[in-house]
Design a protein around this nucleic acid. Structure first.
Lengths: 135, 135
DNA sequence: AATATAAATGAAAACCTTTCTCATTTACAG
DNA sequence: CTGTAAATGAGAAAGGTTTTCATTTATATT
């Protein structure tokens, strides 16, 4: 029941918000740009403006419902937040995105921040390469 | 003697290229956006177009004279290449940028790419936080 | 159920960084 | 010194994202 998630997040239950959340949950492709979400909405017969899609995704990010990936150069990509922190591998040929978790890297990052006197708030790690399929 | 560096890189020695290189070498701030470089040029009395600054920086990147950092969301930042690979720590308050190298992380990244069947071409790692000065 | 009101939306314009176009200028090989 | 390919400047265009503002909608209140 998406409307509960929205209410919990302090957001009014509006048609655009419900439909964007549905798209994110139902689409097989886990990583979607605002444009991807917008097109999926059109295909499912919903006439929701692109500006609203951007607004809703940003609100979802603020509410912790989705994460935004800021990939090298291009546009932002969103993924449903499932509580599990992870980093990403990106195929530079087909744009496939894979996820990974590495505790060693997580620990080293914390240690480095500490060494440098930084109070770490976040980090972003992307490994770029050519995936199995594209080699 | 910058003109030698340019010639070695296979670039004609033109005023804009010499001046951009000078700015990158003389400015205390190691990390500069295209706009920063453009403004510095104006301040030093050079009338070089912004489009040229972008072109020159991209050529320098291709030639290996500078590296381009693609920081979260915003604009690109350039730094003179000194041959040493390193990653970055960014202060989310004052935008200070610090550098670090960590062999453990480097190795783990390679291992993860291998595991996932990726032929790694590059990676980007940024640690965000609040620096000593801003805490 | 009707209403008031603060919030959300759509459409288009604005924004920002970066790239492109094209006429003009420049570097440098011959 | 001259010819030619390459580089430049100015402005337009591109591409993703945000803002503006009039209109619509959700929901708290009668």
């Amino acid at each position: 029941m998406e409307s509960q998630d929205l209410r919990k997040a302090g957001l009014k239950v509006t048609l655009p918000r419900v439909k964007v959340l549905e798209i994110l949950e139902k689409t097989k492709q886990r990583h979607m740009s605002a444009e991807d979400v917008y097109k999926a909405l059109l295909e499912s017969g919903e006439e929701i403006g692109l500006a609203t899609v951007y607004r809703v995704l940003t609100q979802f990010e603020d509410a912790g419902l989705v994460s935004r990936l800021s990939i090298d150069g291009g546009h932002a990509v969103f993924e449903l937040e499932d509580g599990s922190h992870h980093d990403h591998l990106l195929c530079v040929k087909c744009n496939r995105i894979e996820e990974f978790v590495d505790e060693v890297i997580e620990q080293r990052q914390k240690a480095i921040a500490l060494e440098k006197g930084f109070d770490m708030t976040d980090h972003s790690l992307y490994i770029y390469g050519i995936c199995r399929h594209c080699q």
